[in-house]
């Protein structure tokens, strides 16, 4: 995934079955953000892989005061990349089991 300066990682083991997964997001390179980022550590949240959209979580983070509106693209993309990776790994694992 392209380095957006915002890192998103699994916050728990992915057993490949549960639809909601805990993720952790933090800023590795504040310079890449459009606005001055008051570093408040890593933000952990649960994401429903089936029914939720990464951009919505990014919007909620902004509404909760973690980021500025102008950084919604970078935050949304970072979550999207990680979610895509999780789904890709899950598909690969299913294929291996067949």
């Amino acid at each position: 995934a392209e380095d957006t300066g915002v890192r998103v990682e699994l916050a728990e083991e992915d057993d490949g079955k549960k639809s909601s997964i805990a993720l952790k997001l933090w800023v590795e390179d504040p310079k890449k953000l459009k606005t001055k980022y008051k570093d408040n550590g890593a933000i952990e949240f649960t994401f429903d892989l089936e029914n939720e959209v990464p951009e919505d979580v990014a919007q909620e983070m902004i509404e909760s005061g973690f980021f500025h509106e102008s950084d919604i693209k970078i935050v949304g993309k970072s979550i999207k990349d990680r979610v895509a990776l999780i789904k890709w790994k899950r598909e690969r694992t299913v294929l291996l089991q067949v």
């Binding site: 933090w26 550590g41 952990e44 949240f45 649960t46 973690f66």
Partner: peptide
């Protein structure tokens, strides 16, 4: 100080914790 936990109006909980050290070091 920054709240350790923020619950968004839509109900999602955001828990703030220290940024994990670069885990590459201890692998």
């Amino acid at each position: 100080g920054s709240a350790a936990q923020v619950v968004h109006s839509a109900g999602r909980r955001f828990i703030v914790s220290p940024v994990p050290e670069a885990r590459l070091k201890d692998q």
